[in-house]
Simulated scan of single mutants.
Amino acid sequence: MDHFNKDDKYYRAKERIAQIKKFYMSLASFIIFIGFLATLNYYTNEWRNPWFLWAAFGWGIGLFFQAAKTFNFMSLLGKDWEAKKMKEFMEEEDKNKNDEPKIRF
């Protein structure tokens, strides 16, 4: 049974590495291609209309979301968010109850 657990960890780690490699390849493509478009933009109209920024902005949004997924930036949107918040609020309430002074008349 432990053998399957190790295999699962191995394949999850391998998949995670593949996601990271894919992100860095996308980032490299972004830098190269946007650099090419910026150069083309400069030589065609000398920055009077920097149209390459539109391509950089659109692709950049997609790259941002790919990075967020790859590096777990958006833990708020994850599966465990609600459970973590519930636990946090319950612990906070318990702490507040214990900190209240107990006065009896």
Rank of each mutant, 00 (worst) to 15 (best):
N41T: 00
G62F: 01
E82R: 05
I31F: 05
M25G: 11
F64W: 07
A83F: 02
Y10F: 12
F30V: 14
E46C: 14
D80W: 03
E92R: 04
F4T: 12
K87H: 10
F65A: 09
Q19R: 12
E15D: 08
A13F: 13
F71S: 10
M25T: 05
I61E: 06
T39C: 15
N41M: 03
N45T: 02
A67I: 08
N72R: 09
I32E: 02
F71V: 08
A38S: 10
N72Y: 05
K14H: 11
K14A: 12
K6G: 08
Y43L: 15
A38L: 03
G58I: 03
N41L: 01
P50H: 03
L27F: 13
E46V: 13
K87Q: 15
F33A: 15
W51G: 07
D94P: 02
N45I: 05
D8Q: 14
G35D: 11
L27H: 01
E91V: 00
Q66E: 11
R104Y: 02
E92I: 02
F4N: 10
F71W: 07
K79C: 11
K9M: 04
E91F: 05
K6P: 13
I61Q: 06
G62W: 00
A56T: 00
K84D: 09
I31R: 04
N5M: 10
P50W: 00
L53K: 01
D8A: 13
N49M: 09
I32H: 13
F33E: 01
E82G: 11
